[in-house]
Structures are given as structure tokens and as C-alpha cells.
Design a protein around this nucleic acid. Structure first.
Length: 216
DNA sequence: CTCCCGATAT
DNA sequence: ATATCAGGAG
């Protein structure tokens, strides 16, 4: 298994590059925190579309924290879950000002104490803002990690810990970037393009579709 | 487990 | 019509 993990990681590096990349537009930590809260069950393209105007309108943390809630709901409406998200953004940004001196905290415990921030959002911040090796288990990482046989777990937290055992630490961050890119373009949830997939030989579903029979 | 929820691809 | 999207909370 370990041999194939190395091969898979090498192919991912070759195809998508080994550099970390963030798909959510931002210029600072509180903007990334806000964008990631908005990204729940929403495409990153739409989040970027919304935040482009949002961060123009509320150009400081203080202004966003002081926003009128019903106006903020309208501003973020198209991302869905807009009532919860507006409430969480206001509560979290105010908490940053009151408890964290206007800074986005660094530890998992502090980050997940913010309303609307779970492990996925916290790991986006830790990886992107602070460069801490971390694994972001979103819908793509969950789906594709299971297909590749890296985990059989269902719970995102269990998947995160299992991937930390299975993947070399220096690949944790790049894995996120690569798998999300792969999940958006080739290994899509509804109609995966197994015929175009360079990992088809390492994936049960891919082997079935492409006829490749690599022994794992 | 349920609810939150609009936009888009299939 | 239905599944899915850089999920989180009760």
C-alpha cells in the first residue's frame, strides 16, 4: 500500500504541481475566515464572486463586525444558508475583536471556538495563513480518498486523522490542493471522467470503467 | 440524526 | 426532478 501511495502522490505532483494553492480569494486572515465560512455547501467560484463585492463594501474587520445583519444576509444571499452564515460571520468577527485582539487565532481549539468554524475551516486557516501542515477534509477529499483506498471512514474527523497517518507530512498541504482540483475537473461527484484519469489504475471504480487491472 | 438553503450540472 | 457544492451546529 505504501508503495502505491508514493506513486499516487508523485502523479499528483506531476499533474497538478506540488505547490499549495488557495481557491478562495482573500488579502488577509479575516477575509479568508469569512470566505471559508461562506464556502459551506457552495462552490468557491460563487464565494469569490460574492466576497469581491463584500470586501469592497466592508473593507476592514471592524466594518464587517458592525454590519447590519439583514443587510449582510442580502450581501451573501446567493451562497445559500445565508441566515446562519450571516449570524456566524457577525459573531465570529466580533469575537476576533473582543477575545483575540483583532487577529485570527492559530490553534485548532481557538479557531473552532468561533461560531460557524469547524475543523475544515480551521484547517484552511492553519494551512494557508500559518503554514501549519494540516489536512482539509471537504467533500472532494472525502470522496476521492475513499476511492483511492486511503480510508474507509465516513466521519470527516476520523478521515483527517487516518490521512495524517497514511500520508507523509510534507504532502498534507499539497494533497488538499491537488485532490480538490482533481475533484472539480476529473473525479467529479456525479459523472467522473475515469477515461481521462491518470489515477484510474489505483481506483476501484476507475479500474472497472477503464478496464485497467493494476494489482494493489 | 436533522436543519440550514441558493445555484448549477445532469 | 435530483444530486451536489473547500460544512457546521443542535
Amino acid at each position: 500500500m505504501a508503495k502505491y501511495i508514493r506513486e499516487i502522490l508523485q502523479l499528483l505532483d506531476d499533474y497538478y504541481g506540488a505547490e499549495y494553492r488557495c481557491y478562495l480569494s482573500h488579502e488577509n486572515a479575516w477575509q479568508l475566515l469569512t470566505a471559508t465560512i461562506l464556502s459551506a455547501q457552495c462552490t468557491d467560484d460563487r464565494v469569490n464572486q460574492v466576497t469581491k463585492e463584500l470586501f469592497k463594501k466592508y473593507d476592514t474587520l471592524e466594518k464587517l463586525a458592525a454590519a447590519d445583519i439583514s443587510e449582510l444576509e442580502q450581501d451573501i444571499f446567493s451562497t445559500g444558508f445565508y441566515r446562519n452564515k450571516a449570524k456566524n460571520i457577525l459573531a465570529s468577527t466580533n469575537m476576533l475583536l473582543e477575545k483575540f485582539e483583532g487577529e485570527v487565532p492559530r490553534t485548532m481549539e481557538e479557531l473552532t471556538s468561533l461560531p460557524g468554524v469547524g475543523r475544515k475551516t480551521a484547517n484552511v486557516i492553519r494551512g494557508n495563513i500559518y503554514g501549519e501542515p494540516s489536512i482539509v477534509v471537504d467533500t472532494h477529499v472525502k470522496r476521492i480518498s475513499k476511492k483511492l483506498g486511503f480510508t474507509d471512514q465516513e466521519d470527516p474527523e476520523k478521515i483527517e486523522f487516518e490521512l495524517m497517518k497514511v500520508l507523509p507530512k510534507d504532502h498534507w498541504i499539497s494533497y488538499n490542493t491537488q485532490i480538490i482540483a482533481h475533484g472539480r475537473t476529473i473525479c467529479t461527484a456525479r459523472k467522473p471522467k475515469c477515461g481521462e484519469c491518470f489515477l484510474a489504475g489505483y481506483c476501484r471504480e476507475g479500474r472497472k470503467v477503464t478496464g485497467r487491472k493494476d494489482d494493489m
